[in-house]
Design a binder for these strands. Sequence first.
DNA 1: TATGAATGAGTGTTCATTCAT
DNA 2: GATGAATGAACACTCATTCAT
Lengths: 209, 209, 209, 209
Amino acid sequence: MAEVQRRQRRKEDRPGEILEAALALFAEKGFAATRLDEVARRAGVSKGTVYLYFASKEELFKSLVEAMVVPEVERAEFFVAQHEGPARELLVQLVRQWWETVGESHLCGVPKLVLAEAGNFPELARFYTERVITRASRLIASVIERGIGTGEFRPCDPLLTGRLLIAPLVFATIWKQSLSRFDAMDTAAFVDQHIDLFLHGLLAGEETP
Amino acid sequence: MAEVQRRQRRKEDRPGEILEAALALFAEKGFAATRLDEVARRAGVSKGTVYLYFASKEELFKSLVEAMVVPEVERAEFFVAQHEGPARELLVQLVRQWWETVGESHLCGVPKLVLAEAGNFPELARFYTERVITRASRLIASVIERGIGTGEFRPCDPLLTGRLLIAPLVFATIWKQSLSRFDAMDTAAFVDQHIDLFLHGLLAGEETP
Amino acid sequence: MAEVQRRQRRKEDRPGEILEAALALFAEKGFAATRLDEVARRAGVSKGTVYLYFASKEELFKSLVEAMVVPEVERAEFFVAQHEGPARELLVQLVRQWWETVGESHLCGVPKLVLAEAGNFPELARFYTERVITRASRLIASVIERGIGTGEFRPCDPLLTGRLLIAPLVFATIWKQSLSRFDAMDTAAFVDQHIDLFLHGLLAGEETP
Amino acid sequence: MAEVQRRQRRKEDRPGEILEAALALFAEKGFAATRLDEVARRAGVSKGTVYLYFASKEELFKSLVEAMVVPEVERAEFFVAQHEGPARELLVQLVRQWWETVGESHLCGVPKLVLAEAGNFPELARFYTERVITRASRLIASVIERGIGTGEFRPCDPLLTGRLLIAPLVFATIWKQSLSRFDAMDTAAFVDQHIDLFLHGLLAGEETP
DNA sequence: TATGAATGAGTGTTCATTCAT
DNA sequence: GATGAATGAACACTCATTCAT
């Protein structure tokens, strides 16, 4: 009976194990260059089994986003909703969280993946934009808006400014994946410096003592 | 005689035409996903002809970089060497030039290309890093150093800060290539806003009364 | 159930069937001129299936040698080890066996194959030399040495003489493969005549009364 | 005018230069693996020029045989016709001549070439058999017949025995081309040993003192 | 449910041959 | 006559997907 339980537990974990394997490999090699063979081997199942749970490579990607990225956006939304105090602090914490949950986690391959393959797999790009990017962009914009409202931040386009906040993070994440072998970069210092400079640029009032 | 001239002109233009075709397709679909067949067809030649001028797909890429990207770096180096006046102005002009010669030109696909394929084609990444990225990074860092030296800019790591200057430009360029269909972005405004914010953050003196 | 058995038998036979097909085609057309497509078709499988069992065309050749030629060398070694009686008889039997197991069997294409392609595929030549030729040469040389030791044969370089023993067999085998259509040769008589002449030349004692 | 003469001389030599180049390369790499590009370059002409003189690769081969191999057969025929004295000496001299004019000359690649490619280019094999092999075989057989007639040689099938005489020479020539890199052979000693053994086997009367 | 053997379309690269100059 | 740019068919090898067991 213990046997049966273990098996059933494993059975229920199969999709999750496959998604983890796919995430790791997509991140490492990109969507097109990842062979389903490898995903299966890494997940400890056979190639056929992958098709048992996911209709195609593209569906596998979508499921992966749904299962592993969207929840992070939701957590962030919850975090923002709960937060009290200056927008400045909230913004810094969002950046730090982005960096921890994406830049330095198993998700670090996702940005490169999406941006690199968007051209060849528009449906994936559309899906990711709708589920992740638009939502996350709005969330950050809302925080900036809050800061402008309270007079903490200089007036600006919140959506655009939010993207300027995220851009270096995405840049650093992709860099780590691709060029760090040939041109190393201290990404932690990069993020710190970005926060410092960005706030310096955004905060109101400081420069007129 | 016009006939002769046309043909001869065409013959000499072949490599350039092939490089243009390759650039367009590499940028659109990535290195791996671009078929040489297509490059040939787009250049109006047969597949064999491509191999008449370029030994392999990788060489085609390298030639493309050498012929179309490196000269831009050299132009920028020349521009910096010639420039007199405040570093701040020079920096802004470098950003504007980057945006014009890369972000809004036929080269706009190159950043995505390099970052997306670096993992699977390390030799290409190494080559590009050596010929373009390292040189350009140093150039920008030198301008920032100059500004720190004259007291215009706050003290900072010039290389890291230079990358923070470029990161949003790269981000915007890739975005245009990949996600703008699904989530439009006013890239011109984005660049303006970036310059404004970045200088605000970088300039010295204002916050110390 | 007969169904099941047939399939399973077939599955296990696949590599062997592919090797047989490869042998036949390599022998007929040479290594370079044989298309893997054809090997697959002749084995009744698809091209992909060949790669399921053999990593490359070269590996296919090596596996073929290992599976079909090396065992013959081993059989001959065993035969020599077991043999008692005059070296002369042993030598004749080795020649007859060579002729039966190579010259007149499905292996008859191998000598031409190896000699013809050695120049263009040095790794294959190296492999075949190591696994087959050197071993077989030593074996024959050892028999000749034995005969010299017992005084049956005239003193001579055993390795060189061994090659002189094999040379006409190889020649006849290749001839059958290539020129017999245009210039027929009674290879059986050729071999008999060779044995007769060679022993006549090699045997000691007769001319020294 | 000297200019004109030099040019005209060169012009007339073109086909010969191309044939020499083709011979060298066919010998080195085989018929199929030799690129016409290389032949042209080695002959100091352009690829198109080769087609000016030879309708195709196969025709090039045939012309080569006609121009460079057939004359050697004719020389041998003349030599045999002129010779007086024991057949034994003549036979030895024919072997030595074969070795010098084929085994150790620029023609040394021809035997491998013919035997290796006969299967894939039957027309070449037919042509070569008719022009070279049959004639040479008859010539040697006639010498052996002469020796049998005079009682020098033991009675035997002269054609078959002639082939046994040539077989090791062909074998040694091919070996030099293909396997000598991996299993060296002293071909000169090989030929000497062959002559010794062969005559020992063929000569009449010696063994009954 | 799970397997993994089998498929076959797809792509980088080569090279004999052609032909406009 | 001589060139060499251009062609395009050919081939080894890969991999997403299927399906009999």
